[in-house]
Amino acid sequence: MLTIGCHLSTSKGFESMGKDAIRIGANTFQFFTRNPRGSKAKDIDPKDVEELLKIMRENNFGKIVAHAPYTLNPCSDKIETREFARMVMEDDLKRMEYLPHNYYNFHPGSHVGQGVGIGIKYIVSLLNDILKKDQRTIVLLETMAGKGTEIGRTFEELKQILDGVKLSEKIGVCLDTCHIYDAGYDIVNDLDGVLDEFDGIIGLDKLYAIHINDSKNPFHSQKDRHEKLGKGSIGLDTIIKLVNHPKLNKLPFNLETPNDLDGYAEEIRILRNSAEVS
């Protein structure tokens, strides 16, 4: 069965997210650990978390994905900005222990002109500082579109980060369809070739989750603007091919398209139907 969901709001708590997921036909979901444009995080209510875990058990949910806030830049040229990222991510991983054996996704950041090599060194240093042997969360590097000085546009850049992390079993990759298409990986005309390239450089065993998005921009634009499925330059046929691909179809997929819950429900229905007939 396809493991598919979308990004849900934490405003009403964990149990509410679980109920929203069920209502739209999802069996996974993604959520922000805290304000995506700030740093404040709500106190965790253990009873609320337990209600979510119960919903997940009773409805055969796959792995869920927590997303770090957008404000973090682990490879900034400013030490206080890097320290802020370290503090938030370390706290997030402690909070994730309430939801063990799931995933925590973050954007690698922007080197702001220092160069990719220096940026990667800072990211690796941060990860080696915060990752712990006894943590029960896998941390995921997200593939990026490459706008500005973003790190993570190429599989080679992600590989350099992965190779530098000492606790390699605690780190992996989340692939974003809009991001890699905008970055120059042609999943429309050569999905198998892109997956082979990923496997040869990083290894498909390090791919843990996928963000499903169409793109408002043309191929290799390096812009990163998500679109509803079938409304952008990637197209619905490619997304259907991707979610049903034998090398990917066991992974959790999360929609980040510009939708409300009803819109997500319709996209989930379309993708589920495609899995049933493929």
Rank of each mutant, 00 (worst) to 15 (best):
residue 144 M to G: 00
residue 50 E to P: 08
residue 105 N to S: 11
residue 76 S to V: 02
residue 40 K to Q: 14
residue 99 L to S: 08
residue 101 H to Y: 13
residue 229 L to D: 00
residue 42 K to G: 12
residue 43 D to W: 12
residue 22 I to S: 01
residue 10 T to Q: 15
residue 168 S to L: 08
residue 83 E to W: 05
residue 29 F to R: 03
residue 222 Q to A: 13
residue 272 R to W: 03
residue 131 L to P: 01
residue 77 D to A: 15
residue 227 E to D: 12
residue 274 S to K: 01
residue 29 F to V: 00
residue 10 T to L: 15
residue 237 D to T: 07
residue 39 S to K: 14
residue 73 N to P: 01
residue 164 G to F: 03
residue 233 S to L: 09
residue 112 V to A: 15
residue 14 F to S: 07
residue 103 Y to T: 03
residue 256 E to T: 04
residue 37 R to K: 13
residue 80 E to Q: 15
residue 67 H to I: 04
residue 99 L to V: 08
residue 166 K to L: 13
residue 238 T to M: 02
residue 64 I to P: 11
residue 204 L to E: 01
residue 125 S to T: 14
residue 176 D to V: 01
residue 149 T to P: 02
residue 263 G to A: 11
residue 269 R to M: 09
residue 129 D to E: 13
residue 273 N to A: 14
residue 216 K to V: 00
residue 156 E to C: 09
residue 105 N to I: 03
residue 41 A to D: 10
residue 47 K to Y: 15
residue 95 R to V: 04
residue 40 K to C: 10
residue 98 Y to M: 12
residue 202 I to A: 07
residue 49 V to M: 08
residue 113 G to N: 10
residue 148 G to I: 05
residue 249 N to E: 07
residue 98 Y to P: 13
residue 98 Y to H: 14
residue 162 L to N: 02
residue 128 N to M: 08
residue 246 P to E: 03
residue 23 R to M: 13
residue 87 M to V: 13
residue 30 Q to Y: 02
residue 12 K to G: 08
residue 1 M to V: 14
residue 166 K to S: 14
residue 270 I to R: 01
residue 250 K to C: 11
residue 218 P to D: 05
residue 196 D to Y: 06
residue 2 L to T: 06
residue 59 N to V: 01
residue 46 P to N: 09
residue 56 M to I: 05
residue 183 A to P: 00
residue 93 L to G: 10
residue 190 D to C: 04
residue 255 L to M: 06
residue 61 F to Q: 04
residue 214 D to A: 00
residue 28 T to E: 06
residue 21 A to N: 10
residue 94 K to F: 10
residue 251 L to D: 00
residue 128 N to H: 10
residue 87 M to A: 15
residue 109 G to T: 03
residue 44 I to S: 03
residue 262 D to N: 15
residue 7 H to F: 09
residue 23 R to P: 07
residue 160 Q to H: 14
residue 78 K to V: 06
residue 273 N to Y: 07
residue 94 K to W: 11
residue 188 V to Q: 01
residue 191 L to C: 00
residue 207 L to F: 09
residue 213 N to V: 00
residue 68 A to F: 11
residue 13 G to T: 04
residue 164 G to Q: 09
residue 273 N to T: 12
residue 274 S to H: 05
residue 227 E to H: 08
residue 23 R to C: 13
residue 255 L to W: 06
residue 1 M to P: 13
residue 208 Y to R: 12
residue 96 M to H: 13
residue 89 M to W: 06
residue 108 P to G: 03
residue 33 T to D: 10
residue 277 V to S: 15
residue 105 N to E: 02
residue 165 V to Q: 10
residue 133 K to F: 14
residue 218 P to G: 05
residue 212 I to H: 00
residue 118 I to S: 10
residue 82 R to E: 02
residue 85 A to S: 14
residue 54 K to L: 09
residue 221 S to L: 07
